[in-house]
Structure formats: structure tokens, C-alpha cells
Amino acid sequence: SDEELKKRIEELVRRGNKDEARKLAENANSDEARKWWEKLEQL
């Protein structure tokens, strides 16, 4: 689900694993996940 995906992306970003988070968001084929990633990346 998008919610689970967003949690995983956020967790990866928090751990400093941005590349992994980006790949996850891009491969998810989910606009919501991509937007979430872009938002987190700004922080």
C-alpha cells in the first residue's frame, strides 16, 4: 500500500539512505510515493 511504502521511504531517508529511498519511490510506480520522496528530500 502507499502508506506502507511512504513509511519505508521515510525510514530510509531518516537513516541517511537516500539513494535506496529514491529507488524505492521510483520503482513503486506510485505518484504518491514519488511526491512523498520529493518532499522528504527537501528536508
Rank of each mutant, 00 (worst) to 15 (best):
V13E: 01
E32S: 09
K23Y: 07
R8A: 10
L40N: 03
D19W: 04
R8E: 06
L5M: 05
R15T: 13
W37I: 14
E26Q: 12
W37T: 02
K35N: 08
L5D: 00
E20H: 03
E41M: 15
N27L: 14
Q42I: 09
S1D: 12
R15M: 14
E41W: 13
E26C: 04
K39E: 13
E20T: 03
R22F: 11
K6I: 14
S1G: 12
L5I: 07
N29Y: 08
N27Q: 14
N27C: 11
K7F: 07
K35F: 07
E41F: 13
E41R: 09
Q42M: 12
D2T: 13
Q42C: 06
L5Y: 04
A25T: 04
L43A: 12
L5A: 02
E10N: 03
L24P: 01
L40P: 02
E4V: 08
K7S: 10
E38N: 07
I9F: 04
G16Y: 02
E26M: 13
L24C: 05
L12K: 00
N29F: 10
N17T: 02
G16V: 01
R34W: 14
K23W: 11
K39G: 08
R8Q: 11
N27K: 12
E38Y: 08
L12P: 00
N27G: 11
Q42Y: 09
E3M: 08
K18R: 14
L12V: 01
E10P: 00
G16Q: 01
A21V: 01
E38G: 05
R8I: 12
K18S: 13
E32K: 06
N29V: 07
R8G: 01
E3W: 12
E26P: 00
R14V: 08
K23L: 12
V13R: 02
R14E: 07
S1E: 11
A25P: 00
K35M: 11
N27E: 14
D31L: 11
S30D: 06
S30C: 04
A28Q: 04
E32D: 10
E41P: 03
L43Y: 11
R22G: 03
E11M: 06
A28R: 04
E10S: 06
Q42E: 09
D19Y: 05
I9V: 04
L24K: 01
D2Y: 14
D31R: 05
A25K: 02
K18E: 06
K23N: 08
K6Q: 05
L12N: 01
R15P: 01
E10F: 07
A28S: 14
S30L: 06
A25W: 11
I9P: 00
K23M: 10
